[in-house]
Amino acid sequence: MSTTQSERLRELVEPLVSAAELDLEEIEVTRAGRRRQLRIVVDSDQGATLDACAELSRVISQKLDESDAMGDEEYVLEVGSPGAERPLTERRHYARAVGRLVRFQLHEGGEVTARLLGIDDDGIDTEVPGVKGRKPTARRISFDEVAKARVEIEFNRKDTKKEEEA
């Protein structure tokens, strides 16, 4: 049997998240004044919609009410998606970010911002944008080289689907 509250919560919540065809990304319990906050982050290859999060929140809330996983203290339950600038820590995160601009911090030092083109078991295929009229260049980054990676928000990116249709 699990010993920590986090493990008990994971055992309770993970089957419910899987049944909703989502991936459990994170469970976090924090203090917010006199109350605690239980934050559950979920995602999928298609993303986690607001409706899916709301329904999952109802299901999890009911299950928590039936169990003693949160104890007797009051708590607030928050179920949501990881957000736009989420860190990439699992291979599935990289797969979901294909086509997006990603900032890589490398173990050897230095930083690379590049468009993620694809991944395989050994690493990541990227395209580093050209600077001052130069053409973009391909770069292969192995998973072992990456210290941190995060999706970058692009406000002025051209819609490539519209360009391809034109």
Results as ranks from 00 to 15, higher is better:
Met1Phe: 01
Thr3His: 13
Thr4Ser: 15
Ser6Gln: 14
Leu9His: 11
Arg10Phe: 09
Glu11Thr: 13
Glu11Asp: 15
Val13Tyr: 02
Glu14Val: 04
Glu14Arg: 11
Glu14Asp: 12
Leu16Met: 11
Leu16Glu: 07
Val17Met: 13
Val17Asp: 13
Val17Ile: 06
Ala20Leu: 12
Glu21Ala: 06
Asp23Tyr: 15
Leu24Thr: 08
Leu24Ile: 10
Ile27His: 14
Thr30Gly: 05
Thr30Met: 10
Arg31Pro: 13
Ala32Ile: 11
Gly33Leu: 12
Gly33Ser: 05
Arg34Asn: 11
Arg34Ser: 10
Arg34Cys: 08
Arg35Asn: 07
Arg36Thr: 01
Gln37Ile: 14
Leu38Lys: 04
Leu38Arg: 03
Leu38Asn: 10
Arg39Phe: 03
Arg39Lys: 15
Ile40Asp: 05
Ile40Arg: 09
Val42Ile: 14
Val42Met: 13
Asp43Met: 06
Ser44Ala: 15
Gly47Cys: 09
Asp51Gly: 07
Asp51Arg: 07
Asp51Cys: 03
Ala52Leu: 09
Cys53Asn: 11
Ala54Asp: 14
Ala54His: 08
Glu55His: 09
Glu55Cys: 01
Arg58Ile: 04
Val59Asn: 12
Val59Ile: 15
Val59Ala: 11
Ile60Glu: 03
Ile60Trp: 14
Leu64Gly: 02
Leu64His: 10
Asp65Val: 07
Asp68Val: 02
Asp68Tyr: 09
Asp68Ala: 11
Gly71Trp: 14
Asp72Ile: 08
Glu73Ile: 02
Glu74Thr: 08
Tyr75Asp: 01
Val76Gln: 14
Glu78Ser: 14
Glu78Lys: 08
Ser81Pro: 13
Pro82Cys: 06
Pro82Asn: 14
Gly83Asn: 08
Gly83Trp: 09
Ala84Lys: 07
Glu85Leu: 05
Leu88Ile: 07
Leu88Asn: 01
Leu88Cys: 05
Glu90Gln: 15
Arg96Lys: 12
Ala97Ile: 04
Ala97Cys: 08
Ala97His: 06
Arg100Tyr: 02
Arg100Gln: 15
Leu101Arg: 04
Leu101Met: 11
Val102Trp: 12
Val102Lys: 03
Arg103Ile: 00
Phe104Leu: 02
Gln105Ser: 13
Leu106Tyr: 03
Gly109Cys: 08
Glu111Tyr: 10
Val112Phe: 07
Val112Gly: 04
Val112Met: 07
Thr113Cys: 02
Arg115Gly: 00
Leu116Arg: 01
Ile119Cys: 04
Ile119Gly: 07
Ile119Trp: 05
Asp122Cys: 01
Asp122His: 09
Gly123Val: 12
Gly123Trp: 10
Ile124Cys: 03
Thr126Ile: 02
Glu127Phe: 01
Val128Gly: 04
Val128Asp: 05
Val128Ala: 00
Pro129Gly: 10
Pro129His: 05
Pro129Phe: 04
Pro129Ala: 04
Gly130Cys: 06
Gly130Phe: 04
Lys132Met: 00
Gly133Ser: 08
Gly133Ala: 08
Gly133Tyr: 10
Arg134Leu: 03
Lys135Pro: 01
Arg139Asp: 03
Arg140Val: 08
Arg140Gly: 08
Ser142Ile: 04
Phe143Gly: 06
Asp144Ser: 14
Glu145Met: 07
Glu145Gln: 15
Glu145Arg: 14
Ala147Asn: 07
Arg150Met: 12
Arg150Pro: 02
Glu154Leu: 05
Phe155Asp: 04
Asn156Pro: 02
Arg157Gly: 01
Lys158Arg: 08
Thr160Gly: 00
Thr160Phe: 01
Lys161Glu: 00
Glu165Ala: 00
Ala166Pro: 00
